[in-house]
Structure formats: structure tokens, C-alpha cells
């Protein structure tokens, strides 16, 4: 019997106000995968992630998560958004933020159970934020806040974890700790992560998808010429298969420059 893929995207296109963001994207990720979505700014990584979890609807094509429409399985998905648009002055403690990850509409709304609090404690301890549980979220540093958001995503005990730039402002020490944690989680659940820093994640991920309007999925083997072109910058190539290792850096130009000079 063929296993249902964790993520199945068939010929998906999406545009914002007539601007095409993604065109004819196909992608299939199996259960237990640890996939990085990489690509230049504005390439559509976050959009693709939001399409996967059903926060956006594709203009055409189909998204299947665990064999179902994303909205039907949304409670089995964990999501850590980028911090844009979240009200920093909001009067809420770290603990209460994580508890929003435990909300269950089928239950009475009143409050949270002891079990919820235990689960929140476990995830907060995992990201080293338990000591700050009573602090107001807006008083934390950016990196600390991101760790809380990761805890919130994990609090729901999801089958697939979607992380959008989870380490954007996390220091090196916590970054390493975080990826170790993710690797540990990956033994049980599928993880899909948006990250533009390929160097950091290369030794953790199992596959890479390059997103720049189109998508190039890459599961094992070499990164192709095509992919480098798509990424529009000298890519730090990743060798797949186990163990993962970084091959070499192409050139020394920074990311984001026009592609014509990159190869």
C-alpha cells in the first residue's frame, strides 16, 4: 500500500493582486521528512508555507496535507509564523501565549485544563523559557520571543510542524539547541522549515526545496545548475544522503544580487 504523503502539492499557482508569486508548483513530501524551503526574499517561501497550512487558498491547483484539504487537518498542524503583524504591546504572559496553542474549540471555552498547563510547561522547558513563563511577551528579546512561538507551535502536539524563519534572531547557542530539539522531534513528526540560511540547517535537514516563483525539490543527490540559477546567488551546496555535509561555497558574492553573475 502506498503511504499518504505528508504534503502533496499539485500544479499550484498563487498571485497577490495580479502579481504571480508561485507558478505551477509541484511538491510531495513524505511523512518523517525534514524539509527546508529556501530561496531569495520575495521568492514565495512564506506564501508556499501558508498555502500548505490553508491560511491561503491557491488560485489553481490542489494542496493536500496528510491526504486531506489543509483546513480539515489544521488541528494536526503546528505553525510558527514570522512575527510581522503581531501586537507587541498585547497584555499577555509567555505562559498564556503557549496556552493558545492548546485551545480546543470542541471543548468548553472557559479555560485550560491541568493537562494543557503540563503540556505548556514541557514545551517551555524544551526551549528554555519556563523561567520566563510569567513575563509579558512584549518584554522579551526577539530571540526569546521566537523560542516562545516555537513552544506554542509544539504545544499542540502536531503531526507536522511548519516553521517560518524560526531562528531569524536567535543567538548561535540557542540556534544549535533548537535544531537539536527539532532533530529529536523529527523522529516522530514531519518538519517543514523556511530558512534563508542554508549553512545553518544543512546538517539537519533531509531535503531542500528551492522556492523562487517556481519550485525545485531536491531529495538526495546534488543541487543542480537549475537550482543555483533559481536561488539567484552563490549557493552553499548541500550533499544529501547521510551524513549531510556542506560541500563548498561558490564564489563570495552575497545573496540577493542578480543571478547572471552567479555562475
Amino acid at each position: 500500500m502506498k503511504e499518504t504523503p505528508a504534503v502533496e502539492i499539485r500544479d499550484v499557482s498563487f498571485s497577490y493582486n495580479g502579481q504571480p508569486v508561485l507558478q505551477h508548483v509541484n511538491l510531495s513530501l513524505k511523512n518523517g521528512d525534514f524539509t527546508a524551503l529556501i530561496g531569495p526574499n520575495g521568492g514565495g517561501k512564506t506564501t508556499l508555507l501558508k498555502l500548505m497550512i490553508g491560511l491561503l487558498k491557491p488560485d489553481s491547483g490542489e494542496v493536500r496535507i496528510l491526504g486531506e484539504a489543509p483546513r480539515r487537518v489544521s488541528r494536526r498542524l503546528g505553525y510558527m509564523p514570522q512575527e510581522i503583524g503581531i501586537n507587541r504591546n498585547f497584555p499577555i504572559s509567555v505562559m498564556d501565549v503557549v496556552l493558545t496553542g492548546r485551545i480546543d474549540p470542541s471543548r468548553r471555552w472557559g479555560g485550560h485544563t491541568r493537562e494543557d498547563r503540563e503540556a505548556a510547561r514541557t514545551v517551555l522547558e524544551k526551549v528554555n523559557m519556563w523561567a520566563s513563563r510569567d513575563r509579558r511577551i512584549g518584554r522579551l528579546s526577539g530571540g526569546e520571543r521566537q523560542r516562545v512561538f516555537i513552544a506554542r507551535a509544539m504545544a499542540a502536539e502536531p503531526d507536522i510542524l511548519f516553521l517560518d524563519e524560526p531562528t531569524a534572531s536567535v543567538d548561535a547557542f540557542h540556534q544549535g539547541q533548537l535544531f537539536d530539539l527539532l532533530r529529536d522531534l523529527n523522529k516522530r513528526i514531519t518538519i517543514i522549515i523556511v530558512n534563508h540560511d542554508l549553512m545553518v540547517i544543512s546538517s539537519y535537514v533531509k531535503s531542500v526545496a528551492c522556492v523562487n516563483r517556481k519550485l525545485h525539490y531536491h531529495d538526495g543527490g546534488e543541487i543542480t545548475e537549475d537550482m543555483i540559477h533559481m536561488y539567484q546567488c552563490p549557493v552553499e551546496l548541500v550533499a544529501h544522503g547521510i551524513p549531510h555535509r556542506v560541500l563548498r561555497t561558490h564564489g563570495s558574492k552575497t545573496c540577493g544580487k542578480p543571478s547572471n553573475s552567479s555562475s
Binding site: R75, Y79, I92, T100, D104, W109, G110
Partner: peptide
């Protein structure tokens, strides 16, 4: 109450939690 907290703090995340 807890639904209003979740929605007011992060509506997208709340929607995902159902």
C-alpha cells in the same frame, strides 16, 4: 474568553487551532 485572547493576539494562529 480564551478564544478572544487567541484571536486578538494572533488571528491566523487561532484559525489554525480551529
Amino acid at each position: 474568553y480564551s478564544a478572544f485572547v487567541a484571536m486578538s493576539y494572533d488571528a491566523e494562529f487561532a484559525r489554525l487551532r480551529g
